[in-house]
Design a protein around this nucleic acid. Structure first.
Length: 472
RNA sequence: GGCGACAUCGCCAAGUGGUAAGGCAAGGGUCUGCAAAAUCCUUAUCCCCGGUUCGAAUCCGGGUGUCGCCUCCA
């Protein structure tokens, strides 16, 4: 498949290092609060990629970090530190709060039909590994100690800037480089931070402190996936300095290429502008649920835009997603009921499958893939109207739709008829009465049954092949 | 001030040199006892200005606008 590599700034043929196996690392959540739906967009892109790679027969080993250390001191966006505040209010340890949010993160992942990563390592459980990496860099003379903190000496890593384009000269030229006197150079970044005011502290050979933000990803990526991995994904905001620094630390330590393909996911916008806490327009999974939207629709919406393009979130767009999904569900219902002439669908199915696969294979072109699905449905619908879809055809079609959904994961294949208990039989009974009324043209009674059932959330649709029903 | 990306129908969104996919919405038909669903038809010359080319949404230059980042900070 082709993937756009941020490192080379062009699409490249993706061939994993090891035949048939892919190693992928995703920048995960900071568990001091509810992730926004914007965060979930980036997790969903990782999921889409993983599902596609699996679809193509690859075995994917995926690691997503849980950031439960650092960045907890204050929240410059709003001037309040949620973790600290919550910890104080609820009289809990910061780690307890982190665990609570971590759990809710896992619940949300499940609700969004995201396939869990193989490993979700926590930063706080890899402090020793981080210390080891810092020590290695100190031993190599690439890092230095100053004022109890350890900094990375960027003059020792000339390749710095190869990902973001920010060269050291540019950084110096840029206005906003802060001078922190203990650093040898203003652009050197911290590997280990000495700060007595920080909530979390660990003992290290060079004194108490806490790890620099970039360290955990380097360490956990190398530990679980190896010194060189195939794919690393993250939001566009992480490109610089986070990922740039990861490259510096990792490659300086191992002497090997850290990541072969960097994928950066564009941000989700809200009403055309940025999503930010100060504007009060960030939404969480819980917010979407509270507004009565299905998370299936949220998933559909969030994956429906290409990952290298800003996606604009509006409730109208979410509404449209619900409707597009309803269209798919109607189709599935109709298919299940079809029992007419047999048609040869081989060509149609092959075409759809090919367009779907090829689109996604081109840097995850989801729009093309969705077009393939909708085109296919329209063609089949026409055949259904012409009475040309048999029982056997419908099985072929469902099989294909399931294949599509193994990547999209937005369809519902449960058969309404499988409603357990006597309800199904009761509904069937009413339907049989209704068809008798219809046969004797007693439209009043027939409509009354339909209307009454509708009030209970049971929708009837009369088709040439009989009446089908679904529960809201 | 620096680095990077984007700008296509009312909305969402494909398309990187040959005359604009798909979804939602809208209008008009068909089917149906009526609904619902489905289906058909209609709706764009691609932010602006120059240039390259037989030919550009697609390449180049200049504007304008939007988004991300610029170091410890989420």
């Amino acid at each position: 498949m082709l993937l756009y590599n941020s490192l080379t700034k062009r699409k490249e043929e993706f061939i994993p290092l090891q035949k048939g196996k892919v190693t992928m690392y995703n920048c995960g959540p900071t568990v001091y609060g509810q992730p926004s739906i914007g965060n979930y967009r980036s997790f969903l892109v990782a999921d889409l990629l993983k599902r596609y790679l699996q679809y193509q027969g690859y075995q994917v080993n995926q690691v997503m970090n849980i950031t439960d250390v650092g960045h907890l001191e204050n929240d410059s966006d709003t001037g309040e530190d949620k973790l600290e505040k919550k910890a104080r209010q609820e009289k809990k340890e910061p780690l307890e709060i982190a665990r609570l949010y971590e759990e809710s993160f896992h619940r949300d992942i499940k609700k969004l039909n995201i396939i869990p990563a193989e490993v979700y390592p926590r930063a706080t459980e890899h402090i020793q590994d981080m210390i080891d990496l810092v020590q290695l860099l100190l031993d190599k003379g690439i890092a230095y100690e100053a004022g109890g903190s350890i900094y990375f000496d960027l003059t020792r890593f000339p390749e710095y800037g190869k990902l973001s384009g920010n060269t050291l000269e540019d950084l110096i030229a840029g206005k906003r480089v802060e001078i922190k006197k203990e650093k040898r150079n203003p652009f050197d970044f911290a590997l280990w931070i000495h700060n007595p005011d920080h909530l979390m502290q660990w003992e290290a050979p060079w004194g108490k402190g806490y790890p620099g933000w970039h360290l955990e990803c380097s360490v956990m990526s190398i530990k679980y996936l190896g010194e060189t991995i195939d794919i690393h994904t993250g939001g566009e905001d992480n490109k610089f300095p986070h990922h740039e620094c990861e490259i510096a630390q990792s490659e300086a330590a191992t002497g090997k290429q850290f990541v072969r393909f960097w994928l950066h996911i564009k941000h989700l916008l809200v009403n055309g502008g940025k999503m930010s806490k100060s504007l009060g327009n960030t939404y969480t999974i819980a917010d979407i649920e509270a507004k009565g939207f299905s998370l299936r629709a949220l998933r559909y919406f969030l994956i429906s835009g290409h990952y290298r393009q800003n996606l604009n979130f509006t409730f109208d767009a979410l509404e449209a997603a619900e409707k597009a999904l309803a269209k798919i569900q109607n189709f599935l219902e109709l298919i299940r009921k079809s029992d007419n002439q047999h048609a040869d669908l081989n060509e149609l199915i092959e075409q759809a499958k090919e367009k779907f696969r090829d689109s996604l294979g081109d840097d995850l072109n989801i729009s093309g893939a969705l077009a393939a699905v909708f085109d296919f449905m329209r063609k089949i619908n026409t055949l259904i109207s012409d009475g040309k879809i048999s029982r056997k055809n419908s099985e072929e079609i469902i099989t294909l739709m399931r294949k599509f959904d193994s990547i999209l994961a937005v369809m519902d294949f449960t058969e309404e008829r499988e409603t357990k208990g006597v309800e199904t039989e009761l509904i069937q009974l009413l339907l049989s009465y209704r068809s008798e009324f219809k046969a004797s043209k007693n439209w009043q009674m027939a409509d009354r049954i339909r209307d009454d059932l509708k009030k209970m959330g049971i929708h009837l649709k009369d088709t040439p092949d009989g009446t089908i029903w679904s529960i809201e």
